[in-house]
Design a protein around this nucleic acid. Structure first.
Length: 864
DNA sequence: AGCGGATGTCATCCT
DNA sequence: CCAGGATGACATCCG
């Protein structure tokens, strides 16, 4: 009943995920947009699989929604995205339950079940969808996985990029309903076959993305029910992934697949080399029909088709695809969207590649675990490659997976690509598995950009997967893809191995094709990427490149560099500078010490005058001098010191400094009299002290402060503490009570002033220290924030760059595959892809009018 | 003897 | 205007 499955790519700003490193599928959540449209449209089955986020966290998000309302879809998607961003792998399968519950759960929070770090693994073990991610068993695994990823992520910047592949399956509302009801349980099974539903372009996309990995084809169940058209080769690849399917299922899938083909699933072109192998006889038919279908699919993939071809859709099912296409067309609006469009457009091509890639990805994802599924799928699709790789591939996958898991996920992509290239044998599997295989061979270090992977995927699919079938076509047509062919061809024998390079090269080469200047710059990167893959390298490079690519002004670029440097510098600084953690610690410690000191200060300040020793001396002095009540003095001190008192004593000890002030007046006095600025008063005081106090109280004097000594010398009847700390009123009263001469009054006022000023000074110093500490903290925080922002910036730049690369590569692929009526490839230099509401249009560069171009392109596509 | 930290003190400004 | 807080500058001690 499924008429078509569409793979959509959303470049939705928010949905802008791509798997940079894996690069398998650059599919996006166009689905989201489509989902909206589709939702409104009606019974449609949305299958969204989000794949690995960054290498860091492999995120696989599978979102299946059936008849979900828009907000649901959006919400889910957004949620998924958020989760994915977080690095959580989600498998949302509303479809199974009919969804809401899962959704709710999801919304509430990613349950361990949902958070599948290794969705693929699950599959592998559990048969992919067969095992619902929610299974308790997985929780531990996921949790562990997550933690591991998190830990890993610590070292790396998290790039939000993720790959999302979305499939839309359109069914008649009726069928859909039935399908949904049925599918629910079967979904897991379907996963393998689900792709069946997928029609070409979408299928391709899906294949690339989710298809392979998740083989979300759970739909297969639907297919069986709905008799979805048979899947494309890609789908087959996916199917391969899904081993779960029974023969019946497989048969159904095949049927569906064929139906799809009949319907005009264009993907066959790519994938379907395998398929063709399987049934060349079918091909003719299919080709005839497919020709149309394919063309359409291509168009869809190209968006060009999407706009138009949709109509063609279901001759059989009678499903109307066009809407989707339109939706796709509608999607295009933003630059990102443009990119997405490009991607979409490319998908048809790319899909295959992607599909392969996805297959690879799927393998990557599922492989170890999914392998079973793959095996299942394989039979469906084509015994061709499957037989070759499945087991080995599985093992390899597992190995790879383990390795990859251990390593950054990013590596996987490249590895995948490589593998793709390397394994000729695993034609089908290679397509899906090839990535894995290649990954094995290749050092993880050599990361390939998603783009590359995609390319590879696409190419491999062509060359490897379908060598007999597809290649011939391609090859025959190969010429069609000049650029690709070159690249691939050069590698061709080993296409797989070199493929990534070829892609890269293709990226480089194509510049003419893609007018995008940025791309040109990027091209350089790709290779380096593969080689470089070190994140650090990537980061820096990416930044620079991005700056370059994105048309950042040199200033900006330099800025970025500076920032980078600054980052490094920051980090260094952080390490070195007090700001740095270690330093911070030191600083903190120092700060703490300082603070403690400062605390002492304040306290001291309070205590200030009266350190213990001083207090003692003071008391003694007081007692001696004024007969002042020691108790009172103590109390005063206590009260005075209260704040600091408790801490204390130890600190106070330090405070005790009172240095020489306590020294014998004579010596000190003489010195001070000379030194002190306020020689007059001091002189007098000191003289007085000398004269009066020296003899009996030397010891006491030594320990007492100057003011105390002075007070003693002046026979002041109350303690300095009192003088200093009494409120003004009381102080005045106190003075009033005692008949004091001017000298005494002056001394008392000076003592009070100095005493207060001393405390003030202590407080001031304390505040100073606190302020300094706070500033240091603020600096650290700002540095951290800056570093974080820079990282984010780098990540975004990287994503943008990768996206651009992908777009470029996709564009190249498109051009490579596009043929005019005469079967001649379009020259990228002569034609340009334009993205409009209707989809992607191939327009002569000379032409300004868009409309005219459309028909041309369509024609071209069809011819193709 | 010189240095740096801790304090005290003074002058000044401000509240 | 005064008392007192805040603070820079300086002086002293001390390790």
């Amino acid at each position: 009943m499924l008429t078509n499955i569409y793979a959509g790519y959303n470049l939705g700003e928010k949905t802008f995920f791509k798997d940079n490193k894996r690069g398998f599928i650059f599919t996006f959540s166009s689905v989201l947009l489509e989902a909206h449209d589709c939702d409104t449209k009606r019974a449609s089955f949305y299958l969204v699989s989000a794949f690995d986020f960054l290498s860091y966290s492999r995120l696989t998000v599978t979102l299946k929604m059936l008849y979900l309302k828009k907000y649901f879809t959006e919400g889910l998607i957004q949620f998924t995205i958020l989760l994915s961003l977080i690095g959580v792998r989600l498998d949302l399968d509303t479809y199974l339950n009919n969804q809401l519950p899962p959704l709710h759960e999801i919304i509430l929070g990613p349950s361990s079940a949902y958070t599948q770090t290794q969705f693929h693994n699950l599959r592998n073990t559990l048969d992919g969808y067969g095992i619902h991610p929610k299974s308790v068993d997985l929780d531990h695994f996921f949790a562990t996985r997550r933690l591991l990823n998190q830990v890993r992520s610590l070292d790396h910047l998290r790039v939000p990029s993720t790959e999302l592949s979305a499939w839309l399956v359109h069914r008649d509302p009726e069928t859909v309903v039935s399908a949904t009801s049925q599918s629910g349980p079967s979904i897991a099974l379907d996963n393998g076959g689900s792709l069946e539903d997928v029609n070409n372009s979408e299928a391709s996309a899906m294949r690339g993305a989710g298809g392979a990995s998740e083989t979300t084809y759970s739909l297969s169940g639907e297919d069986s029910l709905g008799a979805v058209a048979p899947e494309d080769s890609q789908e087959q690849g996916e199917r391969e992934n899904s081993d779960d399917l029974s023969k019946e299922d497989i048969d159904l899938i095949d049927i569906l697949w064929r139906q799809d083909i009949d319907l005009g699933a264009g993907r066959e072109v790519f994938n379907y080399s395998s398929r063709q192998k399987e049934s060349e006889a079918d091909k003719p038919n299919e080709e005839n029909e497919e020709a149309g279908g394919r063309e359409e699919s291509w168009r869809n993939g190209l968006n060009l088709q999407a706009v138009q071809s949709l109509t063609h859709v279901d001759g059989e099912t009678g499903e109307s695809i066009p809407t989707e296409l339109t939706s796709l067309g509608a999607q295009t609006s933003l630059s990102l969207q443009e990119c997405l469009r490009l991607l979409e457009a490319t998908f048809p091509f790319g899909e295959e590649p992607e599909f392969q890639a996805t297959g690879s990805t799927s393998q990557l994802r599922a492989p170890t675990e999914e392998t079973p599924s793959t095996s299942q799928e394989i039979p469906l699709q084509a015994p061709l490659s499957q037989s070759d790789s499945p087991l080995d591939l599985e093992q390899q996958w597992q190995d790879i997976m383990s390795i990859m898991e251990l390593q950054d996920m990013e590596v996987n992509n490249t590895a995948v690509n490589v593998t793709m290239n390397n394994d000729p044998n695993n034609s089908n599997a290679s397509t899906t598995d090839s990535a894995t295989v290649g990954s094995f061979g290749l050092p993880p270090s050599t990361l390939i950009n998603q783009d590359v992977s995609l390319h590879q995927a696409s190419l491999p699919s062509c060359s490897q997967d379908f060598p007999p079938l597809f290649n011939p076509e391609l090859d025959s047509t190969v010429v069609q893809r000049p650029t690709l062919v070159r690249l691939s061809s050069s590698n061709s024998s080993n296409i797989n191995s070199t493929f990534g390079a070829t892609n890269l090269t293709g990226l480089f080469l194509p510049p003419p094709l893609n007018s995008t200047t940025n791309l040109t710059t990027t091209p350089v990167l790709p290779d380096p990427f593969s080689s470089l893959l070190e994140e650090s390298m990537l980061d820096e490079i990416s930044l620079l490149d991005l700056a370059m690519e994105e048309g950042f002004s040199q200033d900006q670029a330099s800025q970025l560099e500076d920032e980078l440097d600054s980052d490094s510098g920051l980090s260094l600084d952080s390490s070195h500078s007090p700001a740095s953690p270690s330093n911070s610690e030191t600083s903190c410690s120092s700060a703490a010490s300082s603070s403690s000191t400062s605390a002492t200060f304040s306290e001291e300040g309070a205590v200030g005058y009266s350190t213990d020793s001083e207090a003692a001396t003071a008391e003694a002095d007081e007692g001696a001098v004024g007969g002042y009540q020691p108790e009172y003095s103590k109390l005063c001190r206590m009260s005075y010191q209260d704040p600091s008192q408790f801490h204390g004593i130890p600190q106070l000890e330090s405070v005790n400094h009172n240095h020489t002030y306590n020294l014998p007046l004579a010596s000190s006095y003489s010195e001070r009299s000379q030194l002190s600025t306020s020689s007059s008063k001091k002189g007098r005081d000191k003289q007085l002290q000398q004269t009066k106090l020296q003899p009996p109280q030397d010891c006491v004097d030594r320990q007492s402060s100057r003011d105390e000594r002075r007070a003693r010398a002046m026979d002041i009847p109350f303690s300095n503490d009192k003088i200093i700390n009494l409120p003004v009123e009381e102080f005045n009263e106190l003075l009033a009570k005692h008949h004091l001469n001017e000298d005494q009054l002056s001394l008392i006022r000076d003592i009070r002033r100095r005493g207060k000023n001393k405390m003030a000074a202590q407080n001031c110093r304390k505040r100073k220290l606190d302020t300094i500490l706070k500033l240091e903290e603020g600096v650290q925080d700002l540095q951290r924030e800056k570093a974080q922002l820079l990282k984010e910036k780098m990540e975004y730049c990287k994503c943008i760059r990768q996206t651009k690369q992908k777009v470029q590569s996709l564009t190249q692929e498109l051009f490579a595959q596009l043929r005019d009526e005469e079967g001649r490839p379009y020259s990228a230099s002569e034609y340009s892809l334009q993205y409009g509401p209707d989809g992607v249009l191939l327009m002569p560069r000379n032409m300004t009018t868009e409309q005219s171009s459309k028909p041309d392109k369509k024609q071209k596509d069809k011819k193709k």
